[in-house]
Amino acid sequence: MAIRISEPFTKDKFADLKAGDSVLITGTVYTARDAAHKRITEAIARGEEPPFPIQDSIIYYVGPTPPKPGRPIGSAGPTTSYRMDAYAPTLLDLGEVAMIGKGQRSEEVMQAVTRNGAVYLAAIGGAAALMARCVKSAEVIAYDDLGAEAVRKLYVEDLPVVVVLDPVGGNLYVEGREEYLNSIK
């Protein structure tokens, strides 16, 4: 059974999640890929306001396809997360509660997740049409010149994700593989 989590995304709602849990997210999430992460962290370093409040935010690593007329968004699956590894610890230390992406993370990101009681969630890579249906509204709020990589404010309903890194150090990519290999011994 999937666990439903709705905004506001305060950390207490994520504290009991375990690696491998299925979660349905409802509320506002912000999109950013590496180009946007670079600009956001540079803005923060200069003492400027980031384009959205980082505290209690969920950042979805996605660069969607253009919306067809009458649709809020095009296909919207996760991009590979390690490209954000250089920037993610800064945002986690500023209160980002969850990252949505796919693929392995660095040791520095894993430490920042447990240090801050945050989570790393995986969306289904390559199932972008399925996830597009969960996006009810989308609006570019910063870095429009980046095109698909601009920062968008999305409202999602029941966006399906799986917990990869939980707040106490669980890692689905390690545990899931071990569990499967043990099960076929």
Binding site: G63, P64, G77, L130, R133
Partner: peptide
């Protein structure tokens, strides 16, 4: 869903 011709298979 992609075969309905509205959403591409992947955003990439």
């Amino acid at each position: 869903i992609a075969e309905e011709g509205i959403f591409p298979l992947c955003q990439d």
